[in-house]
């Protein structure tokens, strides 16, 4: 059954991808990218990766599309025809493809339970998570404790992207006069989206928080939650315009969220060191190591959520704050 699904979805993926590359209208490409992302996410879900599917949905279909669109609004929507370089590209691509296909034949079949990946490290996680962490979602356990250091790194990748976009787009942190002069935006003239959106926003936020705090029990966690909550705020700013959105969540607060989130994660680790453990060894925080780990994980997941949410918002606003008018005079 799974295989049938998978084949169906995968074929659609390929078709979509071809369409994305073929289309000369960037706008269409971006919209198709969102389909691509949805398909990918469904595919992940079919392949038993619920957490990843949720992330891909929230990040890929939601945020990425929005950021792409906001960038498109500032640049161009039409790709100019250009045929140079195809030969080389095809050669390079062909070589790489044959390399990968060559590799395929010794790979374990999809779903093969005897594959090496299922024999070595992973069983430890599956066997011990309940005992060592006290909650069922193994992905969250690996993410936040066994490989918590990776996650820390990832938070800082997001942080880097955030400051990078702010730096490159030279968006001031804090509300400077330059950014208030923007002409009115938003969909406030569209009654239906506005009203529905206003109803929806709190529920998205609540759902995001739910995802945030149930990461230990079901698919979810800081990343997904951060992305979902950010989506809520983005929806709000789409509806009400930049200014209103910035009034509700000022730039400083966005950046503050990123910084606090990142620091929160880091400080928990440092606290563990101070308490006599290794970095990010939550078990030393309290007497009962299982409870201690749970508390530690809740805190760091909150940090992750804050950081991702703040970063996505900052990035979005950095793009959104540059109107097309600014573009023209800066040339």
């Amino acid at each position: 059954m799974t295989i049938v699904f998978a084949i169906f979805l995968l074929t659609m993926l390929v078709i979509t991808a071809v369409a994305i590359v073929q289309s000369s209208n960037l706008f269409v490409s971006v919209m198709l990218t969102s389909i691509f992302s949805l398909l990918m996410s469904t595919n992940f879900f079919v392949l038993d990766a619920a957490d990843v599917a949720l992330t891909e949905a929230a990040v890929g279909a939601g945020i990425t599309t929005v950021i792409f669109l906001s960038a498109l609004a500032l640049t161009a929507t039409q790709e100019k025809p250009n045929r140079s370089g195809r030969g080389i590209a095809l050669i390079v691509v062909g070589l790489t493809a044959s390399l990968i296909i060559y590799a395929t034949f010794d790979k374990p079949r999809l779903g093969d339970p005897d594959a090496p990946v299922h024999q070595h490290v992973a069983p430890y996680y599956l066997d011990n998570t309940m005992e060592q962490m006290g909650f069922p979602n193994v992905v969250t356990a690996v993410l936040s404790s066994y490989r918590g250091y990776d996650t820390l790194g990832e938070v800082f990748v997001v942080f880097a992207a955030c400051i990078g976009v702010l730096f490159i787009l030279d968006a001031r942190t804090g509300t400077g006069p330059k950014y208030v002069t923007r002409k009115m935006t938003g969909l406030r003239h569209h009654l239906i989206p506005q009203v529905v959106g206003r109803i929806l926003v709190p529920f998205i936020v609540l759902f995001g928080l739910y995802v945030q705090f149930h990461g230990e029990y079901g698919p979810g966690g800081g990343f997904q939650a951060g992305a979902i909550i950010a989506t809520a705020f983005i929806l709000y700013s789409l509806l009400e315009g930049e200014q209103a959105a910035l009034r509700a969540v000022p730039r400083s607060a966005q950046l503050g969220l990123v910084i606090c989130g990142a620091l929160m994660f880091g400080m928990v680790g440092v606290l563990c060191m101070i308490m006599g453990g290794e970095f990010l060894d939550y078990s030393v925080l309290m007497e009962n190591p299982v409870t201690a780990r749970q508390i530690g994980i809740i805190v760091i997941e909150a940090g992750v959520g804050m950081a991702v949410c703040g970063a996505m918002l900052s990035i979005f606003h950095a793009f959104a704050a540059r109107s097309a008018e600014d573009t023209d005079e800066a040339v």
Partner: peptide
Amino acid sequence: LTLFLARRMVF
């Protein structure tokens, strides 16, 4: 928190 945000965001 949601309530607070909702109020803030003219829900």
